[in-house]
Amino acid sequence: MPARILVACGNGIATSTVVASKIRSFMEDKGLPVDTTQTKLMEVPGKVEGFDLLVTTGEFDGKTHGVPYVKGMPILTGIGADNTFNEIYKIIKEKEG
């Protein structure tokens, strides 16, 4: 089963679509396809459990229930995006063993 990533932004539509689809194509190129689910930031605490990774496009300091968390803003601005992608890759790679 591919790793599951929860991608959250303000309304679960706009920026999370951009970030989710960029993560999907990046991971696919790396040979580690992932599933992404989009949601609103306000719904993260109630939804995040059971996911392998949480990525948010903005500031978030709610509960993550132990799910690893990566800030996705660089993927939007393009500044420092490589580091963010690598961070995501590392976390998923470790999960998959």
């Binding site: 303000g10 920026t15 999370s16 930031l41 500031e59």
Partner: peptide
């Protein structure tokens, strides 16, 4: 300034509390 969707700031705790 890179124009971004305001979605990037609405996760702030003060914003959520007010909302």
């Amino acid at each position: 300034f890179i124009g971004l969707d305001a979605a990037v700031v609405v996760g702030n705790q003060d914003v959520i509390t007010t909302a």
